[in-house]
Amino acid sequence: MKENLLIKGKTTDLKEYKIADRFKDLEKSKKIEILKKMYQIRYFENEVEHFILKGEIYGTCHLYIGEEANAVGAISAIKHNDWIVSHHRGHGHCIAKDSDLNFMMSELIGKGNGYCKGKGGSMHIADMDKYNLGANGIVGGGMGIAVGAALTNKLKKNDGVVICFIGDASTNNGIFHESVNIASIWNLPLIYFCENNQYGMSTPIISSTNIEKISDRKASYGIVGLTIDGNNVVEVYNVVSHFAELCRKGKGPILIESLTYRWKGHSKHDSQIYRTKDEVERWKEYDPILRYKNHLIEENTVTAGEVLEIEKKVIEEIKNAADFAEKSAYPELKELETDVYAD
């Protein structure tokens, strides 16, 4: 098996693009917020795993642990009223987009006060109020929707930008080509943020794709594309800030390939026979949270003590969300046939 790019240390194409370090100038509160969100995702997903073990998550669900810097870095770099489109591994995107942890957890265990009234579940959490167009059970399903949302921005002449989160493996579905191509001829304000976690289910991306970098696909569309370190939230923030601005000026779309790794199995049931423990451990050395925490401490934004406080608060919050969800009621049966059509 070919070694992946990040471990080989040839990740970033940053120099080519003169990307400024905007992160450096962020207010302390925003920098802390980024850390808090990453912790929220990590502990939320840990809690979801407990629910899985207790048998309270029906069907399946996909955990985002290890990939936190992608969602948080990218979403911190856009405005609250910029749309995002997510995918099946979507809990992290929701949290980064300020979704309510209680209602998320309720949805995951099928409660009536969940984000989708218990109708959608893990693979369908959406929150229109937070400009989150939702996860998707169909790999690639979001790539059409993202074009539409970006077109709305263009037609309404607002300066909104859309981030379409996609997985590495989804770029091999036909809709990827149709979507990026049309976005490119229309110069849509759309960032394809490809979370390359090295696998699509059990299949290594390097065995299902004949090029080394997914970002090289930019050539087919005449657009900007680059590969970045997706376990470095500062880098993700800087890159997305830079390109979101270009998109707003009519220079989209952009293809960002963000190298990362999922620590857990693909979904609820996964024997993980396709990878070694050693590989997982090597990736854990690039723990995005640990790296960011150290970065903040080194640049004297926070002390180790403050970090611990933040972490403790998040643990409490997640515990409360789990309690809230467990105490919530299941949907009423009359909800079964509502919401099929709008009035």
């Binding site: 029906y58 949805e107 099928g110 218990g118 109708k119 949907p331 079964l336």
Partner: peptide, 16 residues
């Protein structure tokens, strides 16, 4: 089944 997408929550799914 009733005429709606298949819901996630087992309570609703069983009803459908």
């Amino acid at each position: 089944s009733s005429n709606n997408p298949v819901p996630y929550s087992h309570i609703l799914e069983e009803e459908m």
